[in-house]
Amino acid sequence: MPAAVPAVLAAAGVVFVGLPLVGLLERVSWSSLGSELSAHDAYVALRLSLETSLGALAVAVAFGLPLAWVLARRTFPGRALVRALVVLPMVLPPVVGGIALLYAFGRRGLAGQLLYDLTGWRLVFNTSGAVLAEAFVSMPFLVVTAEAAFRSMDRRAEEAAATLGAGPAYRFWRVTLPAVAPALGAGAALTWARALGEFGATITFAGNLPGVTQTSPLLIYLDIESGHETTALALSLVLLLVSLGVLVGLRQRWLGNP
């Protein structure tokens, strides 16, 4: 194989990924960017996106961190199965996730019906539903990074703390957690970015209403559909910059340069 072939294919790969971004930037109306983003709908969607993605991150940490700990440190029958199940949303089409969430937490769903009958509370068409959909899709990113960190950290510090009389809780908070903090930070950033960009599960499960469930990706989609391209592009630019920011931050602060 001529030496130039891999380089040419690699360059084609870069163009393949880069060109759509250039196309997006080329279409952005820079002069009206400020007014587009401060317009009511866009502002409301951006604020809701921030709130729901942080909510999803909180849910992912609350359940994902213990899950990662158990997967890394305990052996139990079916562990491989549990691990596969927990990571599944990473590869599952989000719209399928949304439908599955409906069958579980919808008003006629397995748990949703009970919840509705007992409390009159519904997740569908509610901000909590958008948080749930985002958490469902993004939690695997936290579990995967946290489990790897719990697994690969140097256990001797924990053992030393134990011989010095530290209890399990003290060891976790003062020894284990600080040791895995950088990896957890990276996992949290990925989880948050994934939650921020969530579309398919959210529109399928939670619905679409400004200020309630219409997050930025949903507004982008609807704006493009109804011909409001400039607003859609302005919001797209914000999401693109946030994604880039997360990646750059991860590379420099947590992953280290190769």
Binding site: V212, Q214, L222
Partner: peptide
């Protein structure tokens, strides 16, 4: 005051046939 604004008639109708709306 709608609880959701769907992308077309079929998805709006699906929200009713599925029992969510």
């Amino acid at each position: 005051r709608p609880v959701s604004l769907e992308t077309d008639v079929k998805s709006a109708l699906a929200k009713v046939t599925s029992g969510e709306a």
